[in-house]
C-alpha cells in the first residue's frame, strides 16, 4: 500500500483513544514525548512505507489548529483559549 488511507478504519475508536491517553498516565512531559516517538516508530515500521509515512506527516501538519496568538502560559490563561481564538490552518485538510 503506497497511499495513506484516511477512511475510518478502527473497529473500536473509543477504546483506541482511551488506550492512547491511558498510555501517558504518570509520564512526565519528556517521557510522554519519548513514548510517542517510540509509538510512532513502531507504527511507521508496521506500515512499512516511507511514502505513506510522509503522506501521514503532511496530513498531520496540514490539520493543525494553530492558536491565533502565541499560546498563553500557565493554567490561568488556559481558560481563555478555545475555538474562538483558533483558526483552521488548512480549510481543505483531510478529515480523519
Amino acid at each position: 500500500m503506497t497511499t495513506l488511507d484516511t477512511r475510518p478504519r478502527l473497529d473500536d475508536p473509543d477504546l483506541a483513544f482511551e488506550s492512547l491517553v491511558e498510555a501517558h498516565r504518570d509520564l512526565t512531559a519528556e517521557q510522554s514525548r519519548r513514548f510517542d516517538a517510540r509509538l510512532v516508530l513502531l507504527l511507521a515500521n508496521h506500515i512499512g512505507s516511507v511514502t505513506v509515512l510522509r503522506a501521514a506527516i503532511t496530513a498531520a501538519r496540514a490539520t493543525a489548529w494553530e492558536p491565533a496568538e502565541a499560546p498563553p502560559a500557565g493554567e490561568a490563561a488556559a481558560s481563555q483559549t478555545g475555538p474562538a481564538t483558533m483558526r483552521l490552518a488548512s480549510a481543505r485538510a483531510p478529515r480523519s
Binding site: 519528556e30 514525548r33 519519548r34 510517542d36 516517538a37 517510540r38 510512532v40 516508530l41 513502531l42 515500521n45
Partner: peptide, 24 residues
C-alpha cells in the same frame, strides 16, 4: 531540538529489543 532528541532516544531504546529500529 527536543523533538529530534526524543526521536533519537526512542530509536535507541527500541533498538535494544527490536531489530527493526537498528537500521534507524
Amino acid at each position: 531540538n527536543e523533538a529530534a532528541r526524543a526521536y533519537r532516544d526512542a530509536v535507541l531504546e527500541l533498538a535494544a529489543s527490536h531489530h527493526f529500529a537498528r537500521p534507524l
